[in-house]
Computed example of a mutant assay.
Amino acid sequence: MILNRRQILATATAAVMTAASSARARDMAGFDAALQAAFDGAETPALGGMVVGPDGAIWTGERGVRQAGGATVGSDDLWHLGSNTKAMTAALYGRLVDMGQASWTATLGEALPDMPMDAAWTDMPVKQVMAHRGGLSDATALGQAWLMTARADPASLPDQRRTLATTMLASPPAGTPGTFGYANSNYILIGAIIERITGGSWEDAMRTELFEPLGIKTGGFGAPQGDQPWGHSGGRSIDPSGPVTDNPAALGPAGTAHISLQDYGRFLRVFLSDGAGWLKPETLAVLIQPVGEGQPPYAGGWITPPGQPWAQGVCLTHDGSNTLWYASTWVAPGIGKAFVAVSNDAQRGRPACQALIPGLIQAI
């Protein structure tokens, strides 16, 4: 039989597609096996995982139950991100830079010109605060007294954050400016700056400038409500309708977002595709560039750990928890992949998440 050129091309194309399909099936099987191995070795009620590419989620998987003794988790379920919200807040600020409403060179004095502040803060770069190198300490404004009363505060969330920012900046830095000191206060302050720029709440800015343009339908704040996974403490499920199921809402920019895995992939693809048309490439470059010296190297909501040859370049990572949930994210733009592990029990889920990530990386 003599084949013409069109038949040859069709046969070759079919062979390539078959090989690609087989390779994809092997990848999916490897990811599933990594998830099962991490879940089998843990006591967490549920464990979820995701691998992301430049176009979004490549694979997602989940094991376990929404609550102890309850229904199994599903592919569209919501997971609390904890401090992995910080990368979203930093990226939101970057979005405002691209819109001409904010600046990467701004100081606190310029960003909050009508706020009284100690002279030590006036010339502090906003980027330095974003990198936890401003000298802020949670003890200044987020102490036990605040935690005990914040949930009952009748003031609007922007007013609450402005009050917190005023308290933070009324005194000189509690830490050493330029030296890394992780504190949720840094991102509450960034949230207050975003609110001054937009004239609304950080939550509204997240919805209109991050969730909507990225096609995120499930993004929200606080413990997921309704027929969703519940957070756990020591194996005991915590009803999300109760009074203490998340940090006070005013802490939002530092760590209260929840989201489905697929939608989280829509955010992470921004870091795998030069901003995905949502951020300018030069803004993305700022967000992943560490600020200052010393360890750990920290950029816009991400740690950028050195010594990760598998990533073939810069690597971004962050873990988050509100003490009832756990999330771990690793992003490697050099290989066009991001890896996510989530659990609805912070204490028991942490080791499971930290076991799942390397399993997913090894499976690619």
Rank of each mutant, 00 (worst) to 15 (best):
L92K: 04
Y93R: 06
Y93G: 14
G94D: 06
G94I: 12
G94M: 09
G94F: 09
L96W: 05
L96S: 04
L96I: 11
V97E: 03
V97S: 04
D98M: 07
M99C: 07
M99H: 04
M99Q: 14
Q101R: 15
Q101A: 10
Q101S: 13
Q101T: 08
S103I: 10
S103M: 05
S103G: 12
W104N: 06
W104G: 06
T105V: 09
T105F: 03
T105M: 06
T105A: 12
A106D: 12
A106V: 08
T107N: 06
T107K: 03
T107M: 05
T107W: 01
L108P: 05
E110H: 10
L112P: 04
P113R: 07
D114W: 04
D114H: 08
D114P: 03
M115S: 14
M115G: 11
M115T: 15
P116G: 02
P116A: 03
M117A: 13
M117K: 15
M117Y: 09
D118P: 10
A119L: 12
A119F: 05
A120G: 05
A120M: 06
W121Q: 11
T122G: 07
T122R: 15
M124V: 13
M124F: 09
P125D: 13
P125Y: 12
P125G: 14
V126G: 00
V126Q: 01
V126M: 01
K127F: 07
K127W: 10
Q128W: 02
Q128V: 00
Q128F: 02
Q128S: 02
V129D: 03
V129E: 01
V129T: 03
M130D: 13
M130Q: 13
M130L: 12
A131S: 04
A131M: 00
A131N: 01
H132V: 04
H132A: 02
R133Y: 09
R133W: 07
G134H: 09
G134C: 08
G134R: 08
G135V: 07
G135L: 04
L136M: 04
L136D: 00
L136Y: 00
D138L: 07
D138M: 10
A139W: 00
A139Q: 00
T140G: 02
T140D: 00
T140M: 01
L142H: 10
L142P: 09
G143R: 03
G143E: 06
Q144W: 12
Q144L: 15
A145M: 10
W146H: 13
W146T: 14
W146Y: 14
W146E: 11
L147M: 15
L147N: 13
M148Q: 13
M148T: 11
A150Y: 08
A150E: 10
A150F: 07
R151N: 15
R151I: 14
R151S: 07
A152R: 09
A152T: 14
A152Q: 14
D153A: 01
P154K: 02
A155L: 00
A155E: 02
S156N: 01
S156A: 05
S156C: 00
L157C: 10
L157P: 00
P158T: 01
P158V: 01
D159A: 15
Q160L: 05
Q160C: 02
R161C: 14
R162M: 11
T163H: 10
